[in-house]
Structure formats: C-alpha cells, structure tokens
Write a protein that binds this DNA or RNA. Sequence first.
DNA 1: ATATAATGTGAATTGTGAATCACAATTCTT
DNA 2: AAGAATTGTGATTCACAATTCACATTATAT
Lengths: 205, 205
Amino acid sequence: MAAPKTQTLERQEQITQAALDLINDQGVSGLNIAGIARRVGIVPSALYRHFVSKDAVLDAVLDLIRQRLLDNVAHVRKKTPVPLNQLKLLFTRHIVMLRENRAIPHVVFSDAVYNGQPDRKAKVAQIITSYLKEVEFIIESGRQDGTIHKEVVPATAAVMFLGMIMPAVVLWNVSQTKFDMTAHINTAWPAYERSIAVQIPKEAS
Amino acid sequence: MAAPKTQTLERQEQITQAALDLINDQGVSGLNIAGIARRVGIVPSALYRHFVSKDAVLDAVLDLIRQRLLDNVAHVRKKTPVPLNQLKLLFTRHIVMLRENRAIPHVVFSDAVYNGQPDRKAKVAQIITSYLKEVEFIIESGRQDGTIHKEVVPATAAVMFLGMIMPAVVLWNVSQTKFDMTAHINTAWPAYERSIAVQIPKEAS
DNA sequence: ATATAATGTGAATTGTGAATCACAATTCTT
DNA sequence: AAGAATTGTGATTCACAATTCACATTATAT
C-alpha cells in the first residue's frame, strides 16, 4: 500500500504544513521525520526525496511563517486606510493568529533558532525586522497625517507594539490558555493608543 | 583521580549553576548530563547521586531563575522608594540581567516548558505571574502616592512593562547582539513613563 | 578504629531519531 | 510500449545521550 506518487512541489507544501502542525502540537523538539511522514502519509525515508534534511524542513517552515505574518499586514492595509485602525486591527489579528498557531512562537523562540546555524538565526531576525518595518511604516504614515504624535519614535513604538503581543501570548501559553487575551486586548490597546495618538478618542472613559 | 567528595546540597548548587551556564552557551537543547558533569568536575553517572533525572535538574534551574528575578526586585526596592524610579531601575537591571543570562529566555521559552509536564509549565507561569505581581505592586503604590495616573490598570501596565523588555531581548538575541539595547532603553522608557506618569518629567524634550 | 553511609567511577544497557541505500512501483518521455 | 526519471518502501546504520549497575573510594558515626 504505497502512497500515491505526488510531485515534489506539492509534497514539499504538504510536508511543510505537516511540520507546522506537528510543531503546533508538540513543539519544535517534538518535530521529527517520522511524525511528519506519518501525517503526510508517506514513509520516513520518502521524505528525503523532497527535502535534503530535517533542517531544510525547518527552513521551509520559517518561510511559511514569514509569509503568514506579512499576509496579515497586507490584509489589514486593504481593510482600512486609517493608520490607528490598521494598528488596532493588526494587533487583534496578530493575537488571534498566534493563538491558532502556537507553532510560531515555538519556532521563533526555539533553540534551533537561537543556537542553530547563524543563517537560520539571520532568517528569523529578518522576519521579525521586516514585520517591524511594516509596523513602523504604518506609524510613520500616522505621524504624517497628524494622527500620531510627532515625538513618537516609530522604531521604538513598533517594538512596543510587539511588546503588547509577546508577553500576552507567552502568558496565554504558559497559563494553560487561562490568561484572558480578550481582556488584555481591550485594556492594552487604549493604553497604547493613548501613548501615541494625538487626541484622545471620543469616549474618554 | 576521583573528584573530591562533596555534600549533596553543595553539589546540587554546583550542578544547577553549571546547568544554567551550559544553557547560556548552548540553549536548552544543548543541555546534557555529560556537559553538566564535565563542568562540575565529576563523571556523568555521579550526577545521579544528587538528582534523580535530567528533568529534576531543569526544575532546579527554574527555581534558581525565579530566585534571581525576585532578588532583582528586592534590590530595586531597597535602592529607592519612588515607584517610577523603581520601575526605571528594574527595567534597566532586568535587561542587563537577561543580557548576561541568555539562559533565562531560553528556558522560559523552551519546548521543555511548553510541552513538558504540566507541572513545569505551571512553575514557569508562577514565576512570571509572581514577577508581574511585584511590578503591579510598584505601580499600585505609584497610583496611591499620585505619581501614576489613576486610570492606569496595574495588571495591564505590568504586562506592558514586560512588553518593553521581551521583544528587545528577543531582537538582541536574534540579531547577533547587534540590536542596540541601550538606545532602546533610552527611548522606550520615556514613552512608557509618558503613558503612565501623571506629570511629564522636568525636561520635556 | 571500624562499620556504615555517602559519593565517585567506568562499563554496559537502552532508547531514539536522523540519514542512507538497494530495490520496487509509478509516471513521464518519446 | 520501452526506457528514463521520479517517487515510495523497508531494512539498516550510525551517533548520541540518559540511565543503571557493580564496584571503588572517601567521609561520618559510634
């Protein structure tokens, strides 16, 4: 009962997705060739027809993650032209995304990244910084149109934007999903907005 | 050439410290019994006289980390009685600490925590939340003495305090230590202060 | 001092998982 | 339809690391 033959390109996508799913369930340390193969429906050795090594699979997963993150930004841009609304939307969408893809923080924080080849580390650095650049860009356009304070330093504000998300996700993960993300979104966002927006929004509590 | 016999209590401390050092260098996935034993100066099997398993060593490392974090808070409390100054000091000290102990983020974000026994996960949750509680406490006393806005929600402000630190450390790690932490401290802190303090400090840019 | 407990040692055991390889089945080319 | 290329399979190898164990050595108690 051999698995049906499938073009490498398609298999690579299946394998990458399966790897992401596996990491969602078991973390990066739970990522193993046999597990991936099982999910795809092939035998472990067959995987090597499509990837030269396990490391190569991890790199593909990183590419997938980058794509998802940037797609997110693009989607938000289309949704509304107002910088502050874009940020708010990006904030909630990003949190929802990380909730559903626990693999993302897993990979980004994993030892495979922190202590693997410098290439991989650089790749993650590039993913994060390009995401930050997008956020900075939104903030900068807010400064231009006068909705965001001129004194705000875009780079710092972007890092702090990430700072609303990162600890929340970590707490949520560590607390067996008990940490109330919705409540966090509802209180953190106004605080963030207050610190960068020019005028307090209509309903000032 | 046997290693000198040493009381279990002292050896446990040596082993825990060696494990922390090893994680500093190689990450959690690089943590191995042989490596720890080498650093302590004993043979791998000897380690089992003092810890029942590798997992037990990791748990001890977690205890050590908690202790370090809380010592940090206590130190800051002694240094100054002014809440905002305590926060600022805690901020810089925390960053310095994480710079010198890359093991801390490694462990906190590791798979061993995210996918290990629920006990360990709970332990990490407890470490983070107790640290947050301390920060909340400082913020609350600032609200009491009128130096921090009444509208500030201590829990949220504490999470965002962590939010100044976490992404910075991640960026620093991932960027081969190229990310400028000092610059981050200098711009992030005023922004944070502005968002919670009642009055803008003397020199308003 | 001697028995007993505690600690250290080297060898052996066990498990795990990545990677390789010769061969089989399938698809593609022409 | 024959031959070449691609993809799949099972057995196997290899390295690595945690743990156990019988025995040696040192410290402690009486």
